[in-house]
Design a protein around this nucleic acid. Sequence first.
RNA 1: GCCGGGGUGGGGUAGUGGAUAUCCUUGGGGACUGUGGAUCCCCGGACCCGGGUUCAAUUCCCGGACCCGGCCCCA
Length: 437
Amino acid sequence: MTFTMIEKLKGFREFYPEDIRERNKIFRSAERISRVFGYEEISFPSLEPLDLFRIKSGEEIMRQTYSFTDKGGREVTLIPEATPSVSRMLAERKDIPRPVRWYSFQKFWRYEEPQSGRLREFYQYNADLFGSYSTVSDAEIIALAGSILNDLGLKGLYSIRVNHRGMMEKLLRQFGAEHPEKLLPVIDRYHKMERDDIEMEMEKAGLDSSRVRALEGILEKQVPLNGIRQFLSENGVEFTSIDEISWLEHVAELLSSYGINEAVFDASVVRGFNYYTGIVFEAFDIKGDNRAILGGGRYDNLTSVISGTEIPAVGFGMGDVVLELVMRSAGIWREENNDLRVSLCLTSVEFLKEVLPLMTEIRNSGISVLIPPEIKNLSSQMADAAKNRSRFAIIIGKKEIDGGEATVRDMISGEQYHVPFSTLKGWFLKKRSESDI
RNA sequence: GCCGGGGUGGGGUAGUGGAUAUCCUUGGGGACUGUGGAUCCCCGGACCCGGGUUCAAUUCCCGGACCCGGCCCCA
């Protein structure tokens, strides 16, 4: 018989238990930190009308998404991002008091060629703060991002590169650019493009050669957030005419008080989409070669396009793909199962009904109890317990039933204990609290 | 959508225009009816798919899907 396995689609993943475990840690971290910042979870459909995304992105959206006509003739799209749906949710419920703090963690789909850190199906965490235009809310959303990364164990291993779209536009105008917004896509690709091409684009935009060199000097370096003013003035920027510098300085001050010391100023971060209006930021692995772990910024005009109501907003998105790569290279992606699990080993199946109530009691206290599906000889049950990484084996035979005590074997040390049935649950709870098992 | 690279059991590999495709590991069973992942024995499992060249293709050629990486795009 010939059998051909049907392969999974390009850019899609399967998750085995060892894959899920650590990913759940990301979910839990994001959930916990979001909650203590006052953010509440929302969820929205995975399939939306194509028009929801067309509004923002035009027809390019067709090439970059899973879009098709459904059986009812509707043009639909597997959601490639969260913002449009979230904006609609906000617009649908005008009674919700602002500011609104929401987060979500869903699957998204993009029809792109997979490459490092980028797949066709991925999870993305999203957080947004609606209804406030302030340095305080900008700092909050960046602090939220940093706190999640810290909670995951990445403290000191990443940097958050911060910039301000409004400031960049003023700066570029001051440098001679007539249409600063046209230069932003070039700046976005500063670290990818050839030097000659960049300089050509800058000159085309209206910068003279000394300004081109000054701009390159600015784009080249990352400096501490609180050193922006000095850095820019050293590179020929007349900062007195740019209010946004003070804005960034205040955000820097707040972030420092938050204990987020990973934020730096990086003028080359402007984000690809042009709907950002204020602060923009991206977090990177400090070692460097990965794509951005997360990215976001302020988008005060977007909600009006999608929902008809203008509501200031600042937020960010973080995908699981790059995050996993970064956590792996930081050596904090664990695949072992650290749950406290114990395996029941019986010398005869007839004892099972007698100890099942006890096992249920132990399970109810949160400890995993594995019942052997087949009662073979004790030796092979012990071997199974070892293989399934049980920390303890509970051995039950005639002796134990008659004596009313379980024999409990520590599978690491080999020590054995006789524990009365009545105190068995407490014995495990004590073991659990004594160490980090 | 474009470009470069890749492929032999679940994982890691050897090898080949022709014969029963190598080894390790993993998995299953047994030796072993009250004590372990050991040991020994047995078993299962692979040349990505399709077409072409050829007497003969896992091997050479072409195409496709997939994987890795890059471009476009980046929400």
